[in-house]
């Protein structure tokens, strides 16, 4: 198992390096001079040269990359142009807030999606299957910002059951998952956020279950006298690795934050931060956020890999 973990980590390293290169080149890929944003309007050419030297922009690009990477691995992405705080503080704070949403939304989506998909897969073509599939398609295709707004209107404005926006009266830093009052703020964003993954997980579970139910070993299971419930237990375990892969991807996507949902619920998460950084051309924040998010993605894939090979030992050899 340890060998497996080390090997997968070795695979992940070049991916992370590649991503860092892309993040670094953002400075040059974006139109305009990266210094424009920080320089006053009446700057003299001498001062421009000085600032260039100060920031290291006069060095060859590979050297700049090496220096940037060296600081990045130490957690130093510079200062945010917008907030003047260290980028790492802003990015980690917002990632934490998004993680809060995701770590509720993904397990909920998994449980609901897997159950629905399993039911549908056991009765392919029947009305239960059609109902579940219809629901899944709806979950994927209803725009979730619209759903969010409708929920705000219904449960916050009309019924006053739930708070409409934000992370609680004490602000995002004081948010605690052990406070029931704070948890109320999670309900609507989590529900809205889980709709798409529910649909996607239900559909892939349905496909996996229907496919596996047609395999030869299922006949063996019946031939040895197992009850239909026991047969389904076998089928579900066989379907799990495929569904975990889908779930891992969904986790990664959601960690990137849903700009629209976090905007609707004014949730200070990574989507919110990215949206703000793009509007303000805040390149240090973009670099830090994208690099950290990609690392989260790589780490998620690693965890999914390990889970998969724990369930299906055939994957270990691949």
């Amino acid at each position: 198992m340890l060998v497996l973990i080390l090997r997968r980590l070795a695979y992940a390293a070049p991916i992370a390096l590649g991503v860092s290169l892309v993040c670094f080149s953002l400075v040059y890929l974006a139109p305009g001079d990266p210094l424009q944003a920080v320089m006053p309007a009446d700057v003299t050419p001498d001062m421009v040269e000085m600032i260039r030297h100060e920031y290291g922009f006069d060095k060859p690009i590979p050297v700049q990359y090496a220096l940037w990477l060296w600081r990045a691995v130490q957690g130093d992405f510079g200062l945010s142009i917008g907030s003047r705080r260290p980028v790492i503080v802003d990015v980690l704070g917002s990632l934490q807030n998004t993680l809060l949403l995701t770590s509720f939304a993904v397990p909920i989506a998994f449980v609901i999606g897997y159950t629905l998909g399993a039911i549908a897969g056991c009765f392919p073509g029947r009305w239960l299957d059609r109902t579940v599939t219809g629901f899944a398609v709806m979950g994927v295709s209803v725009p979730n910002y619209w759903l969010g707004i409708v929920m705000v209107i219904a449960f916050a404005v009309e019924l006053s059951w739930l708070p409409a926006t934000g992370m609680g009266p004490r602000g995002s830093d004081a948010f605690s998952i052990f406070s029931l009052g704070d948890l109320r703020y999670l309900v609507m964003p989590v529900f809205t956020l889980s709709m798409v993954p529910v649909g996607i997980i239900a559909r892939s579970t349905r496909a996996a279950v229907a496919e596996i139910r047609g395999q030869d070993f299922v006949i063996t299971l019946r031939a040895k006298g197992l009850s239909e419930t026991a047969v389904i237990r076998h089928v579900l375990k066989n379907a799990l690795p495929q569904v975990l892969a889908v779930m891992g991807l969904q986790f990664g996507y959601l960690m990137g934050g849903s700009i629209l949902i976090e905007t609707v619920f004014t949730w200070p998460g990574s989507g919110f931060l990215l949206a703000k950084a793009i509007i303000n051309r805040d390149i240090p924040v973009l670099q830090g956020a994208i690099l950290l998010l990609s690392l989260v993605f790589v780490a998620t894939n690693l965890v999914v890999d390990l889970l998969q090979s724990a369930i299906d030992p055939r994957i270990r050899r691949a």
């Binding site: 395999q215 030869d216 070993f217 006949i219 063996t220 299971l221 076998h234 375990k237 066989n238 369930i311 299906d312 030992p313 055939r314």
Partner: peptide, 8 residues
């Protein structure tokens, strides 16, 4: 090969 459950 196909008649036995691969994950048990």
């Amino acid at each position: 090969m196909t008649a036995l459950d691969p994950v048990y």
